[in-house]
Design a protein around this nucleic acid. Structure first.
Length: 277
DNA sequence: ATGGTAGGTATCCTA
């Protein structure tokens, strides 16, 4: 049973519907996790995404900012929105998929400009949400099988996850304190970094390029902020990953590009549902 | 060293 999962910070789903359809056509994900949908649930373009083949949709959105949505060709069950740090931000959706898979769709705060939790509440919030998630997964470690965690984690952990490691050591997204917080979250289950099992850590990989560059491809000052993580039991079934950076060249693009992983999972996990595939 | 752009919303906040 092949399962293709894509994560994409779409930066306003309503503005990006045509690009969403193009990504779906070219990447063909079974499950598409979006972040920064920037729309209240009542205004979510349900008809449009159903028209793209996603009959199962879980939205957790708010006006203007943040918001996550999980679009699926396979049935979703047990979906829940989880709020962290006692704020109303919509940043985390959990859904169960056939095969007893548990899928987390996350949007970690960007964290503002000043990498000091004492003076910058947004940076403090970012660290606190990463810490809270790590503690939560650590507490659930015993039942932590068949877990997929994807999303815009807003941290580039490896030196090769940014265009210039030394220059970005004091830039939010690559500071040591954030990287440590992200690593604690990764160790919590622990999770396997799917992209880095297929692309060696010596190789630079980016999923985000600032809008502020004159020529994003020529300057290539990117960062790897978007991630797909797997619980250890799922890692052996990973077939390939892909990063669709052509999406960054579309007219009025998101500053993030889709990241995709395909798993080839045992048919026995899916029972009768696996027969049709 | 600096400032550069984009989206939502309503004039500035967040990324």
């Amino acid at each position: 049973m092949r399962l293709r999962v894509t994560t994409w910070n779409v930066n306003s789903i309503r503005l990006r519907l045509d690009q969403l359809a193009l990504v779906v056509e070219r990447v063909r994900p079974d499950v598409l996790c979006l972040q920064e949908t920037k729309v209240e649930d009542a205004r979510f373009p349900f008809d449009a995404v159903r028209g793209m083949g996603f009959q199962h949709v879980f939205v957790h959105g708010q006006k203007t900012w943040h918001g996550v949505a999980t679009l699926s060709r396979l049935p979703l069950s047990g979906c829940e929105a989880i709020r962290w740090c006692n704020v109303e931000d919509c940043r985390h959706a959990v859904c169960r998929l056939p095969g007893e898979l548990e899928l987390h769709n996350l949007y970690i705060p960007a964290g503002g400009d000043v990498p000091d939790p004492e003076v910058n509440p947004r940076f403090r919030h970012k660290l606190e949400m990463l810490e809270a998630l790590a503690a939560w997964f650590e507490a659930r470690r015993r039942q932590a099988e068949r877990v997929i965690l994807v999303g815009d984690l807003n941290v580039a952990p490896l030196p090769t996850d940014v265009w210039n490691h030394r220059a970005l050591l004091d830039v939010v997204s690559h500071t040591p304190v954030e990287v440590e917080a992200l690593e604690r979250l990764q160790r919590s289950l622990p999770f396997v970094d799917a992209v880095r099992t297929k692309i060696p850590p010596e190789e630079k990989v980016f999923t985000w390029w600032s809008y502020r560059a004159r020529d994003w491809r020529r300057s290539n000052r990117g960062r790897r902020l978007d991630h797909i993580w797997l619980s250890p039991d799922l890692a052996p079934y990973l077939v390939f990953v892909r990063i669709d950076d052509w999406v960054r060249d579309l007219e009025r693009p998101s500053d993030h590009v889709p990241v995709t992983a395909e798993l080839d999972l045992p048919d026995s996990w899916f029972g009768d549902a696996a027969v049709r595939s």
